[in-house]
Simulated assay, not measured.
Amino acid sequence: MEIAAAVFYIAVILVGARFISAKGVIVLCSICTLLTVVSFFLTTKGLFETGLINCIIALSALYLTTYIILRTQVAENNAINATYQMTRIARIQSLGELTASIAHEINQPLAATTASADACRNWLMRDKPDINRAIQALERIRRETRRASEVVERIRRLSKNEITQKEICDLNDIVSDTLALSNALIEHHDIELTWNRYDAPLIVHVDKVQMMQVIGNLFLNAIEALQPRLVTERFITVKTFTMNAQACFRMTDTGVGLSEEDIKHIFDAFWTKRDGGTGLGLTLCRAIVEAHKGIISARQNSHGGAIFEIILPCKINKESNNSGA
């Protein structure tokens, strides 16, 4: 009975560790220690020396189990923190590669704002001020200023170092925001982009910033894969659709493509064919998608190039099912 009680206490701590913090585990261990000691003093039958030895063995097993659990929790927390830091490093690296695109996206609304401000001044300085056209120019200034602010907000979200925060959002909006940061880079490399956007919201429960990072990384990889191709052969096709009540994102490029060996290892950590690459980009992409209970896959494009697909749980209308596969 003494051994059975000790095993029971250990089982309680092992189960409780799944639901409580390190401080809670220590409190639970203290309670079990108290019960073990009390039971020893309340036991009147049997040899005192045997009971004392059993009590010491039970407490030792209890403390050893608690120590192992606490060390495991510390290791898990360190692993989680390391993952967050690696994800942020990859995110900052992606932003660095998108610098030209971001600058272009900000310069466009600033240039439009300057032009509209000059136009507004001219309309107001005429002998007979044209108020209506001046108001239209001011409205354009307001619209372009908001556009620049949205670009800055996207950059701010991508660069923040914060714990995952899932929210209800539209997968189409995530793709749109990512394209807004990548569009100028795509244009700079003379790539023809086609987006077949699903005509209804694809409601998903995800961390928007992390999903932008995943899709953005796929865009960067596709752009690099298209560099050896002739300008007339550079195409990226993006499609959002639903399949079996799932929200799907598919990106097809006509780049250098993937071999069977590439497909086997493309999501492995530290595996890369890119000069200067870390081999962590697609590994983190897979980790992020799987953390959202989704699937990311890669396959060859029959017309040359590669196809990447992301499938996420989706809340959609029943009539929308299987409409885009």
Score class of each variant (00 low, 15 high):
M212C: 13
K208G: 12
I223H: 11
A200T: 15
K23L: 07
F241K: 02
T240V: 05
N321K: 08
S116C: 05
N172L: 02
P129S: 04
M243C: 11
N77R: 04
S101C: 05
I215K: 13
I168P: 13
T164G: 12
I191A: 08
T145S: 08
S60H: 02
S259A: 05
V175L: 10
L52W: 03
K318W: 04
I10E: 09
G277M: 06
K273D: 12
I92G: 12
M86T: 14
S297Q: 15
L98V: 04
E309Y: 00
R146H: 13
Y63H: 11
S60E: 00
E144F: 05
A222F: 01
D262E: 01
F19T: 06
I203G: 00
E192P: 02
S21G: 12
T72G: 10
G24Q: 04
V151E: 04
N122P: 04
A75K: 05
D199M: 05
I13H: 07
Y198W: 11
N221H: 07
I3V: 15
I141F: 03
C314I: 04
E290V: 01
I311S: 15
L202A: 05
L28Y: 13
A222K: 02
M251A: 04
T272N: 11
I10M: 08
I68E: 14
F270S: 06
C29L: 05
A115G: 10
R133E: 15
G255V: 01
G255T: 02
K318C: 11
H205C: 08
M211Q: 07
L42G: 08
M243T: 13
A222N: 05
I3L: 15
L52Y: 03
E192G: 03
G281A: 15
I89G: 10
K293I: 02
L284N: 12
T50Y: 01
D130A: 08
I92Q: 14
T33W: 10
A58F: 06
A117I: 02
